[in-house]
Amino acid sequence: MISPFSLEGKTVLVTGSSSGIGRGIAVECSKMGARIILNGRSMQRLEETMTLLSGSGHSIIEADLSNQSEIEKLVQSIPQIDGCVFCAGIPQVCPVKHIKRGELEDIFSVNTLAPIMMTSALAKRKKITKGASLVFIESISGVYVGTRGDVSYNASKAALNGFVKGAALEFASQGIRVNAVNPGLVPTNILHLTNSMFSEEHHADIMLNSYPLKRLGKPEDIAYGVIYLLSDASGWVTGTNLVIDGGYVLN
């Protein structure tokens, strides 16, 4: 009997799979039998991810999803997909009084507009199979909690969450499910951008005082939740948020 959590025979596109959570998702999905289409902006790092994948039939498409023409080229070049995980994202540490329009547009371009426009392009070109699953990596920030100095990031994820709810309703008649995963703090390369403000000691303090399970997240923690939402095991789940945060939002 095939496990309902198996991804055998499914083709899954993972954006932002050159490192961090996206890489972890790609690796774990391949272990469950999926054929993975890797996407990111660095061919070198995507090739590194490729070496970690299990199975065969995987491919790489280098593309910057903040560029609409590159979104169109990516969508044209792929076969029909059974799943898509929108993981590409950037942080931005900036207090309210220092927000600049250009920087705000930059973070919304990657975190919000790119996955929305890509979903639209996939739908227009009929690249999403009936019964497919779309999974958006959001955050607890902006959806469940707010964080000081992180307001632009919070807003970009909150806006994406609104899109997920509406898209779930629109795609339901086609049997296409749309859900979000909301991680807590997962130390990855992306956090190096904020290390000038937050030291390892700061992260350790957060871990002990803010996370009931007394540890920060790992990419595979998020990947396992994504596998559930991509698989047939979640066949009656759409428009929901799966919080994976070690209990942070309980505090």
Rank of each mutant, 00 (worst) to 15 (best):
I81D: 02
L7Q: 07
L52G: 04
A34D: 06
R41K: 13
T15D: 05
G55N: 08
G16N: 07
Q92H: 13
H58C: 07
R23C: 07
L7A: 07
I81F: 07
Q80V: 10
L13S: 02
I90V: 11
S59N: 04
S56N: 15
T11W: 01
V27Y: 09
A63D: 03
E47Q: 14
G22S: 04
G55H: 08
L52N: 07
S66T: 13
G89C: 06
A26Y: 05
S6T: 15
L38S: 05
M32V: 10
C94R: 13
E62M: 10
C84S: 11
S66A: 15
E72K: 11
I61L: 11
H98P: 00
V96L: 13
K10Y: 03
R41G: 01
L46H: 01
I90W: 01
L74A: 03
Q68L: 13
C94P: 01
G57F: 08
E28Q: 15
E28G: 08
Q80P: 06
C87R: 00
G33F: 09
V96S: 12
I36P: 06
V93Q: 13
I71H: 03
L38C: 08
E28L: 15
S77W: 00
E28I: 12
Q92K: 14
G24F: 06
Q76N: 13
A63Y: 03
Q80L: 11
S30W: 06
T15K: 04
G9H: 09
L52E: 15
K31W: 05
I99F: 10
L53A: 10
I60M: 02
T51S: 14
S18N: 10
S17N: 09
G22F: 01
C87K: 00
V93W: 12
V27A: 12
T15L: 04
S54N: 15
S18A: 14
E62H: 00
Q44H: 13
S6C: 09
I21A: 06
P79S: 14
R45T: 13
